[in-house]
């Protein structure tokens, strides 16, 4: 049982301490932002600032609770995570966000597809990027052309649909 072990070791859990600090910071930000609000003189018995204050207070208390739990090592055991795959996938999402407006949906999403596959250990990119772009183009065609969903067009889509760039 992990609970029994952690109670005996008594070394504070560093990551949990960071969580406590983040919660406290969010609480303070909400307090501060809400105190800056201008409350309009409309008929409002419970105004727009009451709920934010309640939430901020709650987060403050939870930060204290998390702190205590961190000191007592109350957090469950964590798996050993690899950060490499996470970097690939986040990289894919960032690349998609940046590429969408200029390269269009298929290319941007194809890159996301390939980098995600890479995160799961499948490559090489020169093979998976074309696969991703083709897959994304098919998806784009079905949703943007067939179902009129507004998805960004790029040179690839324009060339295939209209025959010119």
């Amino acid at each position: 049982m992990s609970v029994g072990q952690s109670n005996s070791t008594r070394r504070p859990d560093g990551a949990a301490l960071v969580i406590a600090v983040i919660l406290a910071a969010i609480s303070i930000i909400i307090f501060w932002q809400t105190s800056q609000m201008r409350v309009p003189p409309i008929q409002q018995r419970v105004g727009p600032t009451v709920f934010p204050y309640i939430v901020a207070a709650g987060l403050g208390l939870l930060a204290i609770g998390t702190l205590i739990s961190a000191l007592r090592n109350g957090f469950p055991a964590r798996s050993k995570d690899d950060y490499g795959p996470i970097a690939w996938i986040i990289g894919g999402l960032v690349a998609q966000i940046l590429l969408l407006s200029t390269a269009g949906f298929s290319v941007a999403t194809g890159v996301l597809f390939a980098l995600t596959a890479k995160g799961f250990g499948r490559g090489p990119l020169w093979q998976t990027i074309p696969i991703g772009v083709i897959f994304s183009f098919i998806v784009w065609f079905i949703f943007a052309r067939g179902l009129q969903l507004s998805l960004p067009m790029g040179p690839v889509e324009r060339f295939i649909v209209t025959g010119s760039f």
Binding site: L100, S101, T102, G104, M153, G154, P155, R158, T162
Partner: peptide
């Protein structure tokens, strides 16, 4: 500057 503008298609 935005190439996403489908000015050619519509």
């Amino acid at each position: 500057g935005a190439l996403s503008m489908p000015a050619f298609a519509a």
